[in-house]
């Protein structure tokens, strides 16, 4: 565990609490992409298959169960409690391509051609693009509630912070997972435009608005 990894995980945790806070306080899931949320459930279920056979490290196990549980809970909230506020008409990014593309990448790049390794690789590629339906929804509405942008930022910062963590581990421990590193870099590039607008507008106290 190093400071980058810890900050990344805390950022990931924070993103979930910000999202739940947004839904509860505004009593609405407007501006949140159901499709991205569903992809995250798929990401965690395929990434954390090792919950079934261990080894169960306390910190990792608690976090894994929390990420699976909270993402399923958000889907439940969006599907039932706050269904009328969901922008179904605008939230129509074709996730089939993201899932199919990630699966092909997983078949091509994996540590071993076994079910769990292919699923692990699939989860990393899918996570790298899972925010796209959310960013697409943002693009279509052209603006976002500030709290929603904090959520997206914290979620993106998690993987961005894992990059110095990987560099640190490569140098200090001689350990490197190329699939995770490449997928993490792609994920951070996917977020680049959003980060730019977040830093130049939201941090300066302005509303998140995209140029027309």
């Amino acid at each position: 565990m190093n400071i980058f990894r810890l900050l990344g995980d805390l950022s990931h945790l924070a993103s979930i609490f910000i999202l739940l806070h947004k839904i509860r306080t505004t009593k609405s899931c407007a501006g949140i992409s159901f499709r991205s949320q569903a992809l995250y459930v798929l990401v965690y279920l395929t990434r954390y298959l090792d919950l079934l056979w261990g080894p169960w490290l306390l910190y990792n196990t608690v976090m894994k169960l929390f990420f699976i549980g909270s993402s399923v809970y958000v889907l439940y909230l969006m599907k039932f409690d706050y269904k009328p506020s969901h922008d179904m008409g605008l939230d129509n990014f074709k996730v089939e391509y993201l899932i199919g593309g990630s699966f092909v990448m997983a078949l091509l790049f994996n540590l071993a051609f076994t079910f769990d390794e292919v699923m692990w690789s699939f989860s990393l590629w899918l996570e790298s693009v899972a925010i796209l339906p959310q960013l697409f929804l943002l693009q279509r509405t052209g603006e976002a509630e500030t709290i929603t942008t904090h959520y997206i930022f914290a979620l993106g910062a998690y993987r961005a912070l894992y990059i110095p963590n990987w560099l640190y581990r490569w140098v200090m421990e001689g350990r490197v997972e190329f699939i995770a590193v490449f997928a993490g870099i792609i994920q951070t590039i996917v977020y680049a435009d959003f980060f730019y607008v977040y830093f130049t507008k939201v941090i300066q106290g302005q509303k998140f608005e995209l140029p027309a």
Binding site: D9, H12, R47, D50, L57, M63, F67, A112, Y162, E177
Partner: peptide, 10 residues
């Protein structure tokens, strides 16, 4: 060695 590495990240 060919021993499988434990996935210790999230």
């Amino acid at each position: 060695n060919g021993e499988k590495k434990i996935k210790d990240e999230l």
